[in-house]
Simulated assay, not measured.
Amino acid sequence: MRVLIGELSRRTGVHAHLLRYYESQGLLSPGRGPSGYREYADEAVVTVTQIRKLLEAGLSTQEIGVLLPCVTGTTPDLAPCPELLATMRARRDELDERIGTLTRSRGLLHDYIDATERRAAEQHQASATG
C-alpha cells in the first residue's frame, strides 16, 4: 500500500516540509502516482521513525544517509556495517570536543562573573565606608 505525504506526516508526526527535506537528502524515495503526487510505501513510516531517532542522537542527515542501509526496526537496531561504527565514533568524538569547549567556556564565564561580582562588592563596601 502506498500513502501520500499528508498521510505519512499524520502517521509519523513529522511535518510534510521535513519529509520533503528528507527526500532531498536522499533519505526517503517516494514514487509518483498518476496525479504526480508523492507516494510513499508503508515502510516509509519505519524509515521516518529511524531518521528522527538518529537525528535525536546528534547525527546529521548526511551521516544518517550513510547509516540508513545498516538500520532496521523502529528502535532503531543497527547492524554492524563497517561504515556504521566509524561514522558513529567520529560523530561522538566531535560531540565530545564540543562538550569540552563548552565546559571550558562555561568555566571561564563563571570566573568572569565571580571576579566582577567581587569587584562590585568591593566597590559597594568602599563607598559605604568612605
Results as ranks from 00 to 15, higher is better:
55 L>G: 13
71 V>G: 06
107 G>V: 08
13 G>P: 08
20 R>N: 12
92 R>E: 10
38 R>F: 01
95 L>T: 12
62 Q>T: 02
58 G>C: 12
72 T>D: 14
5 I>F: 02
85 L>T: 08
38 R>W: 02
119 R>D: 12
117 E>F: 04
31 G>H: 09
6 G>E: 04
30 P>T: 11
51 I>W: 13
47 T>Q: 14
60 S>L: 06
30 P>A: 10
16 A>H: 09
51 I>M: 13
4 L>E: 12
78 L>N: 07
12 T>R: 04
97 E>Y: 10
67 L>C: 14
17 H>T: 08
19 L>I: 09
88 M>C: 13
35 S>V: 03
121 A>D: 14
99 I>D: 03
81 C>H: 08
14 V>D: 08
62 Q>D: 01
55 L>S: 15
109 L>Q: 13
73 G>D: 04
127 S>I: 01
123 Q>D: 07
40 Y>Q: 02
39 E>C: 04
82 P>K: 06
70 C>Q: 14
35 S>Y: 03
46 V>M: 07
59 L>G: 11
106 R>C: 05
104 R>C: 03
5 I>H: 00
100 G>M: 10
75 T>C: 00
74 T>N: 05
129 T>V: 07
53 K>H: 15
87 T>E: 11
68 L>K: 11
113 I>Y: 08
18 L>N: 13
70 C>H: 11
3 V>M: 09
117 E>Q: 13
83 E>L: 10
60 S>G: 00
98 R>L: 06
27 L>P: 09
5 I>M: 03
